[in-house]
Amino acid sequence: MNTQMNVNEALPLDTFSQGVKDCIPTLLGYISIGIAFGVIGITSNLSVLEIFLLSVLVYAGSAQFIFCGLYLAGAPFSVIIITTFIVNLRHFLMSLTVAPHLTQYSALRNIGFGTLLTDETFGVAVTKLAKEKTIGGNWMDGLNLTAYFTWIASCTLGGVVGKWLPNAESWGLDFALVAMFAALLIINLVDVGKTKLMHYLKLIALMALIMYVLLYFLPGHIAVLITTIIVATIGVVTEK
């Protein structure tokens, strides 16, 4: 316990409250998507309790939407579970990217960091890493728990008000996620430096091409995973 306290003291910005603060810009994304999910859950014949439990247990936006779609379509449980696994497999890469920076913490705390990793918290964490080269456990907990509780509250709220709010998906609030990823991408690109920037811009152009082709054969979430693996590999091979 003492050694951990020392680690924390060495990092001035590793505070829970700083993690909460850094989570705030992403909350609009969680709230809008969470409410939209709650509404869709209700229209997919889930109860409010089930919407609440799903956001507590699975805690993954796209997987929860797909869960509703498959459940409503009467898909077998095995298909729902396998699809959920594939949709969330990209988290493996995200965890693998963040984990080496948090090995000084206990196994239990690392399980905590991993359990609450999402696309959004990953984006915020790697952006902080790009800027400050280090992230702390208290900061991660602040970020993760703020996102987690906001997500559960938003999904549940969506389920409660769902009866009065049809067509939540047509409001365009889901664009909050795209805007957030775009901003995180730009902030990360700014921090790589001029010489690497050209390399990255070429990689992104190549990625657009690969993505376009793959989308003919694969659903979007698998195309995201595979293009990332291909382009990161090309990145390492072609770096000077």
Binding site: N188, L203, V231
Partner: peptide
Amino acid sequence: RWLSYIPICILSALVLESLF
């Protein structure tokens, strides 16, 4: 080194996928 490419690659992929 490969993992150092993942943040920008995965963020790009998520953005690009939404544009198609």
